[in-house]
Computed example of a mutant assay.
Amino acid sequence: MKRVDVVYVLLFDSDEENILMVKNKGSHSSYYTLPGGAVENGETLEEAAIREVNEETGLNVELEGVFAVSEAFFEDRGHHAIFFTFKGRIVDGEIKISFPDEIEEITWMDAKIAERYAYIPTEAKDLINSKSIIPYILRGNVVHKP
């Protein structure tokens, strides 16, 4: 199976009651997710998360840290996906759909409803409204010398 790294960003509204969700156009049906997508070759997780949110929503974000890590096997696609969900905050921008062939809708969704769609491990669902995050640390290019 091919490993695929996927990043998502958990973004709350100013009252911290609603989560920003995107409705993706699928081959068989549409589905909601947090804004995010696949990490491109040569891209860090952080760069991918910031880029994906901007591409999908028109918003610029800062990441506060890692909220959850999960994984799944998509046997029909031959993918082993690792999902890195960051918690972030909106810096600026205006919500807009830049890729209407991929994104059908962008909406603020009640946190309890969003939990049903977001790739958040069951064990972490109680943490969705908490301030719990772990730092994301890019160690850079590491060269091991003998």
Rank of each mutant, 00 (worst) to 15 (best):
G140A: 09
V53C: 11
K2M: 13
H28W: 07
S98W: 02
I113S: 10
Y136V: 05
G42M: 06
E104L: 06
A68C: 05
T122P: 00
I134Y: 13
L34S: 02
K87S: 09
H79G: 01
G88C: 03
D92E: 15
K145D: 10
S27N: 11
E123G: 09
G36I: 01
D76T: 11
G36A: 10
T122G: 00
S70D: 13
N60L: 09
D5W: 04
F86V: 02
V6G: 00
N24Q: 11
L59I: 09
E123K: 12
G65N: 10
E17T: 12
Y117G: 11
A49Y: 08
N141R: 02
S29I: 11
G78H: 09
I50R: 03
R139D: 10
D126P: 15
E47H: 04
G37Y: 12
E43H: 09
N141T: 02
V91A: 08
E52S: 10
V61Y: 04
N54F: 14
T44W: 13
V91R: 13
I113Q: 14
F86W: 01
P135R: 13
G78W: 06
L20A: 08
I90Q: 08
H144T: 14
E75G: 13
A118N: 07
N60K: 14
A124D: 13
F67G: 01
I113K: 14
K25L: 00
P35K: 10
V39N: 05
F12C: 04
H144W: 07
L127Y: 06
P100A: 09
K112C: 08
D76G: 04
D110N: 15
E105I: 06
E52D: 09
V61W: 03
T57D: 07
I50Q: 02
S130N: 10
A72T: 13
S29Q: 14
T122N: 04
A114P: 04
R3S: 10
A124F: 14
G26W: 07
K112D: 15
P135K: 11
T85S: 12
L20V: 05
E17L: 06
P100Q: 05
T107W: 03
V7N: 02
E17M: 08
R139V: 08
T57L: 06
L63D: 09
K145E: 14
T122W: 06
Y32M: 12
K131W: 04
K112I: 05
V142C: 04
T44N: 11
A124R: 15
F86P: 00
